[in-house]
């Protein structure tokens, strides 16, 4: 069976590659920012500065939600090409 999406993918096999690479790049960026946020939050918690903790947590949560919603665009690959 053929459909539009599959023939598109077959004629442009590099497209999925680009999507996936971009996704991974953005995810790594997000995780880097979250590591930094956690580091700052921990240092400030130990220093008894509480004002920054909730904003840091919210920022971390937003980054996580962005990551989760990006997974929706994760390509599933070109299945059944050979059959």
């Amino acid at each position: 069976m053929s459909n539009f999406r599959r023939s598109q993918n077959q004629s442009n096999p590099n497209k999925l590659n680009a999507i996936l690479s971009t996704l991974i790049f953005i995810l790594i960026l997000n995780v880097t920012m979250q590591i930094w946020l956690l580091y700052v939050a921990l240092n400030n918690a130990l220093d008894n500065n509480k004002e920054i903790l909730i904003p840091a947590f919210v920022a971390s949560l937003i980054l996580f939600i962005i990551g989760i919603s990006l997974l929706y665009y994760l390509p599933t690959g070109n299945r059944n090409i050979r059959k």
């Binding site: 995810l27 995780v31 979250q34 956690l38 903790l53 947590f57 971390s60 996580f64």
Partner: peptide, 11 residues
């Protein structure tokens, strides 16, 4: 990413 978010929450 989720783990870091939870960690931040725990802190």
């Amino acid at each position: 990413s989720g783990g870091l978010m939870v960690g931040s929450g725990l802190v």
